[in-house]
């Protein structure tokens, strides 16, 4: 363990810990835009600068490992002034259209602008203007809002192992894009969207469907493969408008294209909404009473005539444990047969 002090507070952390992590461990806040705990430290946004006694310039806490006896100061008028300049610079090249931005209320940049009270900007100047031309169905890429924190680039490379995007061009024109600025052509896992601190990357399907205020968030489990990823359903007016995942989950916040973007079947108009009974070859609408009585009656007759083993039931890997339990209990105890299975083999 390494002993150091942060803002005069003694802190003890394992060797190799960065100053930022040590500070967070001690519950001392340091602002960042480009840091992500699961990704390689980047040191691009420069907001996490701190003073270290004996070093004549501020260092980025996200990249600097702690050392024994280090004396760190995370906030001072000088440091805060520098952070404010950095934010002013970022905002001077940002659309600042929070009132219509999908990300408002959930945007790290907006949050920091608020805390640093930046409204007028002495550093106003040219802004990047990009034409949108991406025609993939999932990811909205609004690169004018990109602050080049590089999280999307790193996550695509380091976590997803795909490397579909990188930074191209230099200087003020530096830009995150797919090779040769072609359309995004990737696995569409949306991991990049999940880590974007601004409104540069959002889900196309989320557009104008509701922001923070009247959204309910419900934690549940993904309905697709067997990984068992935790997902958060964002619900507004009895409709799922977005899916995300928290970092502190089994799946560490990562999802696949189905899990992240494949939810619109829930509110699909073709959902079955009423029981149906076949009459003269046609399925006709019925009430629950009619349908259930009809089933009870027919199953009863089949059982009476051919025996319980002439009835079989298929349960579902898409249903809950409780439902599966009830189904097999129903087949075994109410119908009286062990003819119950599901699609485990298919």
């Amino acid at each position: 363990m390494i002993d150091l002090s942060i803002n005069g507070l003694p802190v003890s952390v394992p060797e190799g810990t960065t100053i930022l992590d040590a500070a967070r461990f001690a519950d001392i806040p340091i602002p960042t835009l480009c840091h992500h705990p699961k990704l390689t430290p980047y040191g691009g946004c420069r907001l996490c600068i701190v003073d270290v006694k004996g070093i004549n310039r501020p260092v980025t806490s996200c990249t600097t490992p702690v050392a024994a006896g280090m004396e760190v100061t995370t906030t001072s008028p000088t440091i805060e002034k520098l952070r404010k300049t950095i934010l002013e610079l970022i905002l001077s090249d940002h659309p600042n259209d929070c009132m219509v931005c999908e990300k408002a209320g959930d945007c790290t940049l907006q949050e920091l602008a608020y805390f640093y009270g930046i409204r007028e900007n002495r550093l106003d100047g040219e802004r990047r203007v990009y034409a949108k031309k991406d025609d993939n169905p999932f990811i909205e890429r609004n690169m004018e809002k990109c602050i080049l924190c590089g999280k999307c680039v790193r996550i695509c490379d380091e976590v997803q192992g795909v490397g579909a995007i990188d930074i191209a061009y230099r200087g003020f024109n530096a830009k995150v894009c797919p090779p040769f600025e072609k359309n995004l052509d990737c696995e569409f896992c949306g991991q990049c969207v999940s880590v974007c601190p601004t409104g540069a990357l959002t889900g196309k399907a989320w557009g104008q469907r509701g922001r923070q205020k009247d959204i309910k968030e419900i934690e549940t489990i993904c309905p697709y493969c067997g990984c068992g990823c935790s997902i958060t359903l964002h619900v507004r007016r009895n409709e799922v408008i977005r899916v995300s995942s928290r970092e502190d989950t089994l799946n560490e916040g990562w999802l696949c294209p189905k899990g992240r973007f494949g939810y619109s079947f829930i509110n699909n108009a073709a959902r079955l909404k009423t029981p149906l009974i076949r009459e003269e070859g046609q399925l006709k609408e019925a009430t629950w009473d009619e349908a259930l009585d009809f089933i009870a009656d027919r199953l009863g007759k089949v059982k009476a005539k051919y025996g319980a083993d002439s009835i079989a039931g298929l349960s579902s890997a898409r249903c809950t444990n409780e439902e599966n339990y009830l189904f097999q209990k129903f087949m075994r105890a109410a119908v009286g047969t062990n003819n119950v299975d599901h699609c485990a083999r298919l």
Binding site: Y42, G43, G44, C45, R46, T85, I86, L89, I90, S92, D93, L123, G125, E126, I147, L148, G150, I167, Y169, R170, G171, F172, N173, A174, K175
Partner: peptide, 21 residues
């Protein structure tokens, strides 16, 4: 320097642009 900045960090990418402006 502005056109040769790699674009990684904010002060160099945007700051030199503002100085130049």
């Amino acid at each position: 320097t502005q056109s040769e900045s790699c674009g990684k960090c904010v002060p160099c990418r945007i700051g030199t642009k503002r100085l130049l402006e």
